[in-house]
């Protein structure tokens, strides 16, 4: 437990746990509405916020939050108005955000390429006291939204048109998902870095859904996987001097591969059980007349 000694590691581990919880918690709704790469776009936009933070000598985390939220709202507006060239508009937003960030960091007095790299790929030693406070506040917001409104967010992400006809405030909920995703990006920025943030929103969810049948189990399992890989990645990066972001993402992908391998025999067993059930009802020796045909049955 030697890794718990240095103060910077304690801060890094707190940040890591919060990232492990929040990224899959909002990521599951993005995956559900098939916008798995939205986090990636927000990460690009947040870069301009980091640059502004350096230029104005304020906290890059809060600046990145402000810019990422504005970018996420803009993305949601582009989606609402269903512009036919919506993808082009998004491309402008993403690459403009990334290019702006790089430029701003380089013209600021305090910023350097080393700084840039730490924001792009994450860094343990640079998580400051101030960062931890900001990350805790932002993570609390993400957890409140994703758990408190999970039923409503589920409905909107499952079938938006149906959700509108139930009278839910669908526009507000969509904006809330976008804003929460933006906030999560800045929570995760210090540990995994802006370029790999999206992976932590998507990969734990993809891993969890290999073996789960329900949304609830997928949610819990993806948060467990997220927390496990961020903690393991952070500790590994302390001992091995490898970048934490890359380590965490590769561990998450390893979890995905292991669970996928486990899922195949599990699915086979389920199929066999289902088949056995069916064989019983079709038993020709049975005196009981056959029940109503199940829709899954194949007529021979």
């Amino acid at each position: 437990m030697e890794f718990l000694e240095p103060a910077f590691m304690q801060r890094a581990l707190i940040a890591a746990v919060l990232v492990g919880i929040t990224a899959p918690a909002i990521g599951i709704f993005l995956v559900q509405r098939r916008q798995a790469l939205m986090g990636d776009g927000i990460g690009h936009i947040a870069m301009t916020g980091v640059g502004l933070g350096f230029l104005l000598s304020t906290s890059p985390v809060w600046m990145a939050t402000a810019v990422a939220v504005a970018g996420a709202v803009a993305m949601e507006l582009i989606r609402w108005y269903g512009h036919t060239r919506g993808d082009i508009a998004l491309a402008m937003l993403f690459y403009g955000g990334m290019a702006g960030g790089v430029l701003l960091i380089n013209i600021s007095d305090t910023g350097s390429n080393a700084n840039l790299t730490s924001y792009l790929f994450g860094s343990l030693s640079t998580v400051s006291e101030e960062d931890v406070t900001a990350i805790c506040v932002l993570a609390a917001f993400v957890v409140l939204v994703t758990i408190g409104l999970r039923r409503q967010l589920f409905a909107v992400s499952q079938d938006e048109e149906f959700a509108r006809v139930t009278g839910l405030p669908v526009r507000v909920l969509n904006l809330l998902i976008a804003v929460t995703a933006a906030v999560t990006v800045t929570v995760a920025m210090r540990v995994v870095g802006l370029l790999l943030v999206s992976a932590l929103m998507v990969v734990p969810v993809a891993a969890a859904q290999q073996i789960s049948k329900s949304f609830k189990v997928t949610f819990v399992l993806s948060v467990v996987i997220g927390t496990a890989v961020t903690l393991a990645g952070t500790v590994t990066s302390y001992y091995r001097d490898v970048p934490p972001g890359a380590t965490i993402v590769l561990l998450a992908i390893a979890a995905f591969v292991v669970l996928t391998a486990l899922a195949a025999p599990l699915a086979r067993r389920r199929a066999r059980t289902a088949e056995a059930d069916r064989a019983c009802s079709l038993d020709p020796g049975s005196a009981v007349p056959p029940g109503p045909r199940e829709p899954g049955d194949v007529r021979v």
């Binding site: 995956v31 039923r151 499952q158 079938d159 839910l168 329900s214 189990v217």
Partner: peptide, 24 residues
């Protein structure tokens, strides 16, 4: 949808027109 959900979870989302933002 893009994430596994049980029959019950999907059907329960239809009840939101009555529950809105409160707990079921």
């Amino acid at each position: 949808g893009g994430v596994p959900a049980t029959v019950r979870e999907v059907v329960a989302s239809g009840r939101l027109s009555r529950t809105k933002l409160r707990l079921p």
